[in-house]
Amino acid sequence: MLRFILRRLLLALPALFGLMVLTFIMLRVLPADPSAALAGENATPEQIAAIRAAFGFDLPIWKQFLIYFGQVMRADLGTSLFTNRPVAADIALRLPATIELTFAALIFATAVGIPLGTLAAVWHNSAFDHIVRIVTVAGLAVASFWFAIILQFTFSMEFDILPLRGRLETGIDPPPFFTGLYLIDSLVSLNFTTFLNAIEHLIMPAFTLSLGGLATIARFTRAGVLDTMQKDFVSYAKAAGYPERRIIWVYVLRNSVVAATTQIGLLFGALIAGAVAVEWIYDWPGIGSYAVQAIFTSDYKAILAVTLVVGLIYAFVNLAVDVVLALLDPRVAETL
């Protein structure tokens, strides 16, 4: 298994390199003259030349790339035009919030989507199946901002049981930094008030974000279970006297989850994209709302840094998915 992970990591390297080339092109090559852009509208040719020399834009392009490569390797992503702080520091501060949000959404989507899909398959064509189908189609179709507004209106304004926005109530201090995930940090430091408050704040954003993924996972699990139930090894298991429930929830589900897991890897891209909107609506201090802010202020270094970080996370999640797949299905490990 370790060898599999190492080989899989090696395979991820070209993708990460490609990502760097892409961001480099967006950063240095696409702007017609980055020095002129940086110098501003009223700059003299001398000023532009000075900037060109100072930033190394007069160097050959491959040298520029090497420098950029070195900077990224040292986590030097430049300074934000908006916050005037190093972009890397901004991202480090905000990334845990996004990770907390997306993982909460992913865990919820999986924990609900898989049993829902399985039951829909076991009772296929029943009323339950039809309801699940309608709900999942709706889950895919409804725009998250619209859904978020309905949730906010109902639970924050009308009934006032969940907070409208933010990650913690003002007046409650963040827990001591350990992982940056408030739920974990507050538990570790035994701050239960903070923990409960963090959960209250997380519920609506995570639920909003999870909806699309939940629908996809439920649909793929349903299809997977229906398909697996036709397999010979299921009728053999019945004939050999395994109890029906055990066959479905252990033997059939394990095979069907393989298909759903592949989906989770693909879903993660959509989840990050969704996080941009959800964070903005709920004022969630993650890299999604940071990206929106960066776009509004044309803070291109911040935009590219977010792109780079999201790409990195995406590659990592897909690596994790492949490892899980190999753990679920021994034949996968042997194909690599």
Binding site: K231, D232, F233, Y236, A237, K238, A239, A240, G241, Y242, Y251, R254, N255, V258, L328, D329, P330, R331
Partner: peptide, 20 residues
């Protein structure tokens, strides 16, 4: 099933679950 009456299937390639 599996207790008083045992069963040997037709296709040994398909009868075992590949992931267990």
């Amino acid at each position: 099933r599996g207790r008083a009456i045992g069963f040997i299937p037709q296709d040994p390639f398909q009868a075992l679950n590949p992931v267990f």
